[in-house]
């Protein structure tokens, strides 16, 4: 079972899952969630062959024991097993803005302070947060 950002999971789906109606439908749903400013995740699964797992697990154990660049090594090995996934669903979580964020940003803008947004969020989520925070005006 694998959960993560939509772009990251999409790249790791099987051809069949990626081309399915279900994928399109989920994409539609998640774009809608993002427009509402929600934090979204894709959920995907696959069935592993015992042998495939055992072989991978050996590599994974080695990577975990490596003395240098461990995080990178582990990530590389993890990459090998997180492939050919099948999309099964998505989730949407809300993280509300604190009170008076919008007013504060308006004040700063009125004072001529330049405001920038750097984000790893989905573009739709960022746009929506930008609007509700008064960072963007349409």
């Amino acid at each position: 079972m694998c959960k993560g950002a939509d772009t990251v999971i999409s790249e790791r789906l099987s051809h069949q899952s990626r081309e399915s109606d279900m994928f399109q439908k989920t994409e539609e749903i998640v774009n809608k969630y993002a427009e509402e400013g929600l934090r979204t995740l894709y959920l995907a699964e696959k069935i592993l062959d015992e042998q495939v797992y055992q072989q991978w697990n050996q590599k994974a154990q080695q990577a975990k024991l490596s003395m240098q660049n461990r995080e990178e090594m582990v990530a590389q090995v993890d990459e090998l097993i997180e492939t050919e996934l099948e999309l099964i669903g998505s989730t949407a979580i809300e993280d509300r803005l604190q009170d008076e964020v919008a007013d504060t940003i308006q004040f700063m803008k009125a004072a001529g302070i330049k405001v920038w947004v750097l984000t790893g969020d989905k573009i739709e989520t960022a746009m929506n947060i930008g609007l509700s925070a008064g960072l963007l005006d349409q």
């Binding site: 998505s90 949407a92 509300r96």
Partner: peptide, 17 residues
Amino acid sequence: LTCNIMEFKKFSAGYQA
């Protein structure tokens, strides 16, 4: 900027939201 209080609001399973 946000409260960092996450609330599960919606999800989809298969074709259904």
